[in-house]
Every structure is written in structure tokens, then in C-alpha cells.
Simulated assay, not measured.
Amino acid sequence: MTDRPGLRARQKAKTRAAIRRAAYRLAADHGWDAATTDRIAEAAEVSPSTVARYFPVREDILLTDEDDELLEARLRARPAAEEPLESLRAVVVDAVRTALAEEPEETRLRARLMVEIPAVRARLTETTAATGRRLARAIADRTGRCADDLEVRVFTAAVLGALREATVHWAEHGRGDDLVDLLNRTVDTLRTGLTAP
């Protein structure tokens, strides 16, 4: 009886992964417009209603995953005396490094579509804001503030927005640079500000 929730969770994760793989294949081979819910469902061998249940917004297939909970947990596990900016750098850069190592083609395709497809870019802004709200709670707890404090919200949104912009820059310039290096440069810019060349 106690194994059933674990099995159910694993089955859900397997279904989500199948939908995501199908969407990426279709988008890579035929473009995002061709990756309709019906075609994704057929390629993933599930019903269109299953795709819609797991991903009510089609662009979320590209952009959302289960990493927000893990990011928050890793942020909370950082050393208590570490500056919030360095804590965010550590968890986000590590997540990107892992994605590039484990899913390099999907990561590059996601970045390309983010630049090319306005709906994907717009949805990314929304999902980044949702991630920011979640991580702001951890930042607030670490700094003894309220998660709704203006300073906490501004800080978290600024860091995540800057890291998103670094990813857009990477995608716009052919994805040839080292994305991890660009993210680290971004955090360094936030720390030191912009100086004249």
C-alpha cells in the first residue's frame, strides 16, 4: 500500500518525460508551430487530454519541469553565512551545468525557441516570475525578512531576470559560447556594476 504513491509519482514523471521528448523531437524536426498538442500526444502515445492535463499551456512543455522544488531545497541548503547573490549563483549555475551535461540538445533547442517564438519568450517571463516567488521565500528565510518585502522581491527578480537575459544573449549569438561562463559574468556584473571600458 505504501508503494503506490511512489509508483504513481514515477508513472507521472515517465509520462511527463515522454510528452517532453516528443515535443522536442517535433520542434527540432518540424518547428514549434508543427508541434501541436495532437501531434505531441500521438508521438508520446498518450491522449491530447493527457498532454493538456500535464501541460495546460503548450509552451510549458519546453519551459517547466520539476526543478523549482529542487532549486529551492538547494538554496536552503547553502551555507547560512553565504551572501544571497552567491547562493543564487551556485544553485542556478549548477542547474544549468547539469542540464547542459544531461540534455545538451534540448537545452540548446529551448534557448533557440525562446528567441525565435514570441509565445515561448512570453511564457518564459511568466515561469521565471513564478520561480522567483518560490526562491524569494528561501531568500527571505535566509535573511530574516518577509518574502513579500520589496527588497527581497526586487533582488530575486533582478538576479533571475539577469540570468535569463544571459541565456537569451547566448541563444541570439549561436549558442557557441560557454553558457556557464556567461552566467558567472552576469552575476559578476550584478555585483560590481557596469564600468566604462
Rank of each mutant, 00 (worst) to 15 (best):
P84A: 10
T128I: 11
L183I: 03
K12L: 13
G132H: 02
G144S: 10
R112Q: 15
C146T: 04
L70I: 15
I61C: 05
R164V: 13
A140R: 01
E106G: 07
E105I: 00
D60G: 04
E72K: 11
A122S: 13
R78I: 02
P5G: 07
V91L: 06
A13R: 15
L75Q: 03
P118N: 07
D177R: 15
L182F: 07
P5I: 06
E106Y: 01
G6H: 12
R191I: 08
F155C: 02
R185M: 11
R175F: 02
E86S: 13
D60H: 10
L7V: 13
D29F: 08
F155P: 00
F55M: 09
A147K: 00
A90P: 03
R58W: 07
E126G: 06
A9D: 13
V154L: 14
P56S: 09
A43L: 10
L113A: 07
L179M: 08
E151K: 05
L150A: 12
E42W: 03
R164F: 06
V46Q: 03
E116N: 12
Q11A: 15
D188L: 11
T98Y: 03
S87R: 13
L100Y: 00
A77Q: 13
A111V: 04
E42Y: 04
A196P: 02
I40L: 08
L163F: 06
T143I: 05
G6F: 10
T127Y: 01
A44N: 05
A90L: 07
P197T: 12
D60Y: 05
V91M: 06
T131C: 07
L124R: 11
D29R: 14
T107V: 03
E106K: 07
G193Y: 06
L88E: 01
D68V: 11
L100G: 00
R110Y: 00
A129S: 12
R58P: 04
L135Y: 01
D148G: 03
E69G: 15
L135D: 00
H169K: 12
T156M: 05
A99E: 07
A122L: 13
C146Y: 03
